[in-house]
C-alpha cells in the first residue's frame, strides 16, 4: 500500500510552483523506502481519496472555481476529519477558511476546515521574502516567498503557524493557521522545498512513523542563503536608519 499524495486542482491552484510541495513529499518518502505516489487531481474529475493533500496558490477566478468544487464534493473535508494531513498555501489557504474575497472584494464561502477569514487588504500587495518563527511546533525558522493581497483574521479555533520576523503573512504579525493536521500558510518557494522539516512533520503525521533524517545539504545551503539575505537586508535598513540619525544629530549639534 503506497502513500498517496494528492495535489489538489493543479490546473486552478498551480500558478506559483506550489505543485513542488507534492514532489518534495513523495521523494522524501521514497528516499526512506516508503512507497509513495503523486496524484495530480485536476478540477475536471472527482477528488481522489488520499493520505495527504496539498493546495497551492492561484488567480482569483480559479481560486473561486476550486473552492466551489471542494465544497460540493466534500472529499477534502472528510479526509481532514479522518486525520489526513492537509497543507494549503496562499489562495489554497484562503479557501480552506470560512470566507475569502472574490476579485471584486465580495466575500465567498470557503471550505471551512480552518477557523480563519480573509478580506482584501487596503494597502499594497504583500510581495517578497518572508521569514517566520514557528509557534506551535518545534520546527526551525520558516523561509519562503509571499505574494498576496488578502489579510487573514484568525478565529478562536486555530493557532497561528508562525510569528513573522520579516514580511507580512496574515497581516497581524503572524503567518498561517494550524488546526489538528490542517496547516495553512502564505509561504511559496515551494514551502516544503525550503523547509524540509515541515515536509517531514506532514509525512510523519500521514504515516505514523518516526522518520530517520535525510542528508539535506542542498536544502540547508538554500535555507542559510535565504535567511541570511533577509536578515542582512534588515540589518542594512537599521544601519542606514542609524546613519541618518547620526548625521541628523551631527547637523543639529553643529560642527563636531
Amino acid at each position: 500500500m503506497s502513500l498517496r499524495v494528492v495535489v489538489v486542482h493543479p490546473d486552478l491552484l498551480g500558478t506559483y510552483g506550489d505543485g513542488g510541495n507534492g514532489v518534495v513529499l513523495v521523494q522524501r518518502a521514497r528516499w526512506r523506502g516508503i512507497a509513495a505516489e503523486l496524484l495530480e487531481a485536476t478540477s475536471d474529475g472527482p477528488l481522489p481519496v488520499g493520505d495527504l493533500y496539498c493546495l497551492g496558490g492561484g488567480e482569483d477566478a480559479a481560486q473561486a472555481a476550486s473552492a466551489e468544487r471542494l465544497r460540493a464534493d466534500a472529499v477534502l473535508a472528510r479526509a481532514a476529519e479522518r486525520g489526513s494531513p492537509v497543507l494549503a498555501v496562499c489562495a489554497g489557504y484562503q479557501i480552506l477558511g470560512r470566507t475569502f474575497p472574490a476579485a471584486d472584494g465580495r466575500p465567498l464561502a470557503g471550505v471551512g476546515l480552518l477557523d480563519v477569514s480573509t478580506a482584501k487588504g487596503t494597502g499594497r500587495r504583500a510581495v517578497g521574502e518572508i521569514l517566520a518563527e514557528p509557534l506551535c511546533t518545534d520546527l526551525p525558522v520558516l523561509t519562503g516567498f509571499e505574494n498576496h493581497g488578502g489579510l487573514t483574521a484568525r478565529g478562536p479555533n486555530v493557532d497561528p503557524l508562525a510569528r513573522v520576523e520579516s514580511g507580512v503573512g496574515n497581516g497581524d504579525g503572524t503567518d498561517g493557521a494550524v488546526s489538528g493536521r490542517v496547516v495553512g500558510t502564505y509561504l511559496h518557494g515551494p514551502v516544503l522545498a525550503r523547509n524540509p522539516a515541515l515536509a517531514d512533520l506532514l509525512l510523519s503525521w500521514a504515516t505514523g512513523l518516526s522518520l530517520e533524517p535525510l542528508d539535506d545539504g542542498e536544502e540547508a545551503a538554500l535555507r542559510d542563503e535565504r535567511i541570511a539575505a533577509v536578515r542582512a537586508r534588515h540589518a542594512g535598513r537599521w544601519l542606514s536608519c542609524l546613519g541618518r540619525t547620526a548625521r541628523t544629530a551631527r547637523y543639529v549639534s553643529g560642527r563636531s
Binding site: 506559483y16 510552483g17 505543485g19 514532489v23 510581495v127 505574494n147 518557494g189 522545498a193
Partner: peptide, 9 residues
C-alpha cells in the same frame, strides 16, 4: 522576477 518558485514547473 524576484520569485524563482517557477523552477518547480
Amino acid at each position: 522576477g524576484r520569485d524563482p518558485s517557477w523552477l518547480w514547473d
